[in-house]
Design a protein around this nucleic acid. Structure first.
Lengths: 407, 407
DNA sequence: AAAACTTTTTTAATTATTTAACAAGTTTGT
DNA sequence: ACAAACTTGTTAAATAATTAAAAAAGTTTT
């Protein structure tokens, strides 16, 4: 018997996770319930010590509103951010803070079989060492590259199980907690929507500049995933007639003309053919050090590196021009590791828009650089769990041991 | 004092317009209210003669459900479908039937000043001659080409008033009824979503093949319009390196390689340079007769014409490949006047997808030809009014004379 | 052809939610 | 400084909506 007021209370908790310090009036508007009802529910939540008053906010022309926040130790979630080589695991509380330091494991996604089990063991380990009782965990959110069917919980590119078995169900069964997966770029977009540069935006495109180029779409205020969950395949739109073969099998994909990987390769080529630069060839060999080196060079104003970033930026801009024509977004947000290069991206992208986009369409579209940066994917993974909190709390009511088969 | 039950009742009426013959259970699910409540409301609607029972539907394994439909003469709306040269006006009832024949007026959109007044006068005329009392009209829906801000009611391309005054407000004031405008392609998509090939789809792209190429986006079950209402600018995405200047000022737009206009021009060129064909050069001079002639030739299997349509189709397909990468739709629907050519479009579009799209992305995407065809825009214009029926009915409650300034 | 199961319809009891009226605290404008 | 306007907070009464249990009307299985 799920009482309606419980559903509302859970909704309030969810809203307070996504936005600290909301007043009772704010909440009543967000959850679309009357003020007296909202107030009564908050009162009960405060009595149960799930929510605390956080003082008075400034007046907006009337009595000063009391604001509330969720207690950070009420619930916890495990956030997992994977890329092809490195996986980061963190335990995150209700105020989006890391409970302890991030666990980093080197895990190659292509080694299908063992990788999944290693991941599961490490998540279990992270829960254990956190010292937090397991009942306080509400779920595990995982972001990884690949074609992911969010609903079925299948990654068609990596970590696939025999017979297309759902990896979320598989993991949930082993770990005893609900598991949610999504594409890395989608989770970065979710993080930007809830806590970053896209906060409150109804329509935003979040470009994930990384070793490849990803895209997370915020449409009508929510993450858009498409029919099967594959939306946002930005890096393989056929935009160039360069004849260059992409690893996807097609030629002329956006990714053949822009990405950190490409910048790295062009940097090595350039130096080998005698270009003057502050870049240190040695450090370019390893992916991780190459990334550090490139960002440093840009920040120090190295002309050659800036040239490379500018060309890549211009090509991203050509892709963005297509996005703007089709989706008329309010904001374009540059996120992912590449966003560390900062303002350097803006001019070449703007230039590409000037050349390839109808003026009326982009004149009110803002290009912004993420401030979440490398943190984005972990925050997004945590947010993914809370996005699904409605169903989670329902299951918790139903059975004490979770109906994991349903997840 | 808007009673909640009245809001629900209006929602029921709205649902019954969009879908005839719903059972009480169906409705209770759609409007997300309990069965007893829904039943009581329907009872009242039947008593007020707004809704009628339409007999029993087939059983799905239990008692046969009573079904209901909205009375066709309860309310009416004016639907207006404009293109650059011709404007069609119709009065439509609650069962989506034309009350009388469609009024056709030749109205050049570029003659800004007089055109708007002519339109207003003709709409007033259509209301008058329908013989239906004005109180029974709930609103006027208008679809037209151009960059349209739906909320503000401004068309930035045509029919603009001084100081960016809202044309919907202007018209509403003069006509005494709420007025809604939207882009022609968006309304075609709306018609397909509600009554056509996209019925019930959550994610569909509706290509409006006409003198240009338009796009209406159905995302998450609703029309997507973007930040300012400009979404779907499909025909000007920079996809070709052909160097051909488009009227928009850019080069290489999709529209420079596909559209009925282009097919017509290529047909004339071809015949002039001696190609054998059933096409009659004379009839190609006028837009309207050219359209008839081209469709006829395709249906009769004229090789040259089919070649032209195939090339155009292939280029649409290149654009569709981009859409599929970005938005992972369930369905692609070919609508607008060009859809009369039928199946001819499917093979070349599929071919383009094979070449330019990642297999996993398009293998579950269906390409379908509209059955609504030329009717789509008018139906969409009517549906636009009903989409906004919630607010309309609210205003009707508030003031007997409509708060027109709000629309 | 009866038993078992489904789905729809009906009714009454219970619970949830809103409305309305009022109180309290701030800002704005005169 | 003071009224007017506005936002927030409190309470009780009125209303709205859901739940639960059972009846009715079919379908499918045995």
């Amino acid at each position: 018997m799920t009482e309606k007021r419980t559903v509302c209370k859970n909704d309030i908790l969810k809203q307070l996770y996504f936005q600290e310090n909301l007043s009772c009036v704010d909440l009543s508007i967000i959850i679309e319930k009357s003020f007296p009802l909202t107030q009564k529910l908050i009162e009960e939540l405060v009595a149960d010590n799930l929510v605390t008053e956080t003082g008075y906010a400034v007046s907006s022309g009337g009595r000063r509103p009391l604001t509330y926040a969720i207690q950070r130790n009420v619930m916890y979630m495990v956030a997992v951010a994977m890329d092809q080589f490195v996986t980061k695991i963190a335990v995150i509380d209700m105020q989006n803070h890391l409970v302890s330091s991030v666990t980093r494991i080197f895990l190659s996604l292509t080694e299908t079989h063992s990788a999944l089990q290693v991941l599961i063991d490490n998540i279990a380990g992270a829960i254990d060492t956190s010292g937090i009782p397991k009942e306080k965990f509400i779920g595990i959110g995982i972001g990884m590259p690949g074609f992911i069917d969010v609903k079925k919980g299948i990654n068609y590119s990596f970590l696939s199980l025999p017979d297309n078995e759902s990896i979320t169900k598989h993991m949930a069964f082993q770990l005893g907690l609900p598991v949610f997966i999504d594409n890395d770029s989608s989770l970065i977009a979710l993080a930007e929507l809830r806590f970053g540069a896209a906060k409150g935006a109804r329509n935003a495109m979040v470009i994930n500049i990384g070793w490849g180029v990803g895209l997370g779409l915020i449409l009508n205020g929510a993450l858009y995933r498409g029919h099967e969950g594959f939306a946002g395949e930005f890096s393989h739109i056929p935009l160039f007639l360069n004849g260059k073969l992409c690893w996807c099998g097609k030629a002329g994909c956006l990714e053949t003309e822009t990405s950190l990987l490409l910048i790295k390769e062009r940097a090595i080529e350039g130096i080998n053919s005698g270009r003057v630069s502050r870049l240190n060839t040695l450090s370019l060999e390893n992916h991780e050090t190459a990334y550090q080196e490139l960002i440093k060079a840009v920040q120090e104003g190295d002309q050659f590196t800036i040239e490379l970033f500018s060309k890549a930026g211009y090509n991203i801009g050509k892709g963005v021009a297509v996005l703007i024509h089709l989706l008329n977004p309010q904001k374009i947000i540059l996120s992912g590791r590449g966003s560390a290069a900062g303002k350097i991206w803006e001019a070449p992208i703007q230039q590409a828009l000037n050349e390839h986009c109808i003026r009326r369409l982009f004149q009110n579209t803002n290009i912004e650089i993420s401030v979440l940066g490398l943190e984005a994917q972990l925050i997004g993974a945590a947010a993914l769990v809370m996005e699904n909190y409605n169903e989670i709390s329902f299951l918790k009511e139903e059975t004490t041991g979770f109906e994991l088969s349903q997840l």
